[in-house]
Simulated scan of single mutants.
Amino acid sequence: MVSFSSSCQLLRPRQWLKNLMLFFPPFLGGVLLQSGMALRGLRPFAAFCLASSAIYILNDLCDRVNDGQHPKKRLRPLPSGRVSSRTASLLSVACVMGSALAAWGSSAVFLYYLVAYFVVSTAYSLFLKDIALVDIFCISAGFLFRLLAGGAVFGVAISEWLFLSVFLLSIFLSTGKRLGEKRHLGALAEQHRKVLVAYPKGFLEGAMYMTGGSVLVTYTLYALTRSSGLVLHTVPLCCFGLLRHMLRIQSGADGDPTESLTRDLPLFVVGLLWLAMVGWGIYGA
């Protein structure tokens, strides 16, 4: 019998934080607090959570041999043997069916982004993750599909500067994650994730610095388009958050953005301050 904790580990509920991206368009558009608006996003949010969990399980199935050689991932349910491949496969299928059920009745545009997310993520898990740069852009696409799906669900247009900010931020986070993996694994990098050796020395650092600076520029331009001056005042928070994340990675910490946000106190506090200031600037006026 598979334990409940092992099943939860396979689903990776902590990573569901990424699916809150669906609520960014109505939140930043100033309509999230309108009557019934937040409830409208619950089923789409559940659909993306279940779809992402199905992908995480698929990815674990594909990587179970390599994960067994990883200092941390070898303790996961599949490589440790606590969950069989058959059980994990059945759970993944159940998540796909649950996602389809949660998305039933949603708009055609939302379904398009959900399916696109699932297809790209599946291709990533199966073979695209082994192709340099393509792997990073696949991860980035997942964030963009969530953002655009949120705009479709709530009927909110995505501004050009917001789209570019999210795109560049996702590339920044993805390169940081790869850099963190490469540094942490060292000589074992190729055994765990062979694409890591395809990135020459200095490339990931340069890409992280380049996209980090670009995020700061595009977010500043996005903030300048807002009517609230308080939103512009969150630019220093953005700058601090980017630099703090880079400092953590260069100091040898895990590059996973969810881990960084939930386990690093300065980043967590900055995230809450950003949320409070943007929220007050949009809804408090």
Rank of each mutant, 00 (worst) to 15 (best):
S5A: 14
S6P: 13
S7V: 15
Q9C: 12
L10M: 09
R14G: 10
W16A: 09
N19T: 08
L28V: 08
L32E: 01
G36E: 13
M37R: 06
M37W: 04
A38E: 04
A38T: 04
L39E: 14
R40Y: 02
A47S: 14
F48N: 07
C49H: 10
L50H: 10
S53R: 04
A54K: 06
I55W: 12
D63I: 11
R64E: 14
N66G: 11
D67N: 10
D67A: 12
G68R: 07
H70K: 05
K73I: 12
P77V: 14
L78K: 02
P79T: 08
P79G: 08
S80F: 11
R86Y: 14
S92E: 06
S99D: 07
W104A: 15
G105W: 12
V109R: 10
L111H: 12
L114Y: 10
L114E: 11
V119M: 09
A123W: 09
Y124R: 03
S125H: 05
F127V: 11
L128E: 06
K129W: 05
K129E: 02
I131D: 01
A132F: 04
V134L: 15
L144K: 01
R146D: 01
G150N: 00
F154S: 00
V156A: 00
V156K: 01
S159Q: 01
W161E: 03
F163C: 02
L164S: 07
F172M: 02
T175V: 09
G176Q: 06
G180L: 03
G180E: 03
G186E: 02
G186M: 06
G186A: 05
L188A: 12
E190L: 11
V197K: 06
P200F: 08
K201D: 10
G202C: 08
G202H: 03
G202S: 06
F203K: 02
G206L: 15
T211M: 12
G213P: 02
G213E: 04
V215K: 07
V217L: 15
L224D: 09
L224G: 03
T225S: 13
L230V: 03
V235P: 05
F240L: 15
L242H: 05
L243A: 13
L247V: 07
A253G: 08
D256T: 09
D256C: 12
R263I: 10
D264P: 03
L267K: 00
G271W: 03
L273S: 06
M277Y: 06
V278W: 00
G279T: 00
G279V: 00
